[in-house]
């Protein structure tokens, strides 16, 4: 391994365009568009099945999105593995519990960060399922297919996010 200095980030246009090519290749090879949030439904069904399998097998939404390991499940796992490998190779892997912008607003206490991340995750996933997609499924895959739902959802994501981010973090950052 070379020096411990972190590698500089890649140009976002180049990386983004490569991600576009990767998506086109995926659609060509396996007919699959990027998406992520359905995987959390399947995972939740797995967890609940461990407690009460009978109940899960009777629930309409878990019948629609059955607990199974499919293309998207491994896609989501792969994203984590790819990031782990890439961060280790580029010396950018760093154990961090409280991101900098968060610490500037709420301090260094991890408990506060974990609590807000947990609540945010729950709210975001409920919204993603109601919208039938997240920034991957609607934002990328939907809008690049010119789906009306993709653009409407993407607008919703950013409007909701812009308003709350401004309220929560805006004051701290000035102007």
């Amino acid at each position: 391994m070379s020096a411990k200095t972190p590698s500089p980030p890649w140009n976002p246009y180049v990386a983004g365009a490569l991600a576009g090519l990767l998506l086109v290749l995926s659609v060509y090879v396996s007919g699959k568009y990027f998406g992520a949030s359905t995987t959390y439904v399947r995972a939740a069904a797995y967890v609940e099945s461990a407690v009460d399998a009978e109940r899960v097998s009777a629930m309409a939404y878990f019948i629609k999105e059955a607990p199974k390991i499919d293309w998207q499940f491994l896609f989501v796992v792969g994203i984590g593995l790819g990031s782990l490998a890439s961060s280790l190779l580029s010396n950018t892997f760093r154990i961090q519990a409280v991101p900098e912008r968060f610490a500037r607003r709420f301090g260094q206490a991890p408990a506060k960060r974990f609590a807000l991340a947990f609540v945010g995750g729950a709210v975001a996933m409920f919204g993603a399922r109601l919208a039938d997609g997240c920034p991957s499924g609607h934002g990328l895959s939907g809008s690049l297919q010119l789906a009306a739902s993709g653009f409407v959802a993407l607008a919703g994501f950013f409007i909701g996010g812009l308003v709350l981010a401004r309220l929560v973090y805006g004051r701290q950052e000035g102007r």
């Binding site: 990027f34 998406g35 992520a36 949030s37 995987t39 959390y40 989501v76 796992v77 994203i79 984590g80 593995l81 790819g82 990031s83 782990l84 890439s86 961060s87 950018t92 892997f93 760093r94 154990i95 961090q96 991101p99 912008r101 968060f102 807000l116 991340a117 609540v119 945010g120 995750g121 729950a122 709210v123 975001a124 996933m125 409920f126 919204g127 993603a128 399922r129 109601l130 919208a131 039938d132 997240c134 920034p135 991957s136 609607h138 409407v152 959802a153 993407l154 607008a155 919703g156 994501f157 950013f158 409007i159 909701g160 996010g161 812009l162 308003v163 709350l164 981010a165 929560v168």
Partner: peptide
């Protein structure tokens, strides 16, 4: 759903696809 997702996103700062990746880099 889009608006609700946005509210949660602003608190979490990751989305369903990128949360696993953020964990991957520590």
């Amino acid at each position: 759903g889009g608006l609700i997702f946005g509210l949660g996103w602003a608190l979490l700062g990751y989305c369903p696809g990128t949360a696993g990746a953020a964990l991957g880099e520590g």
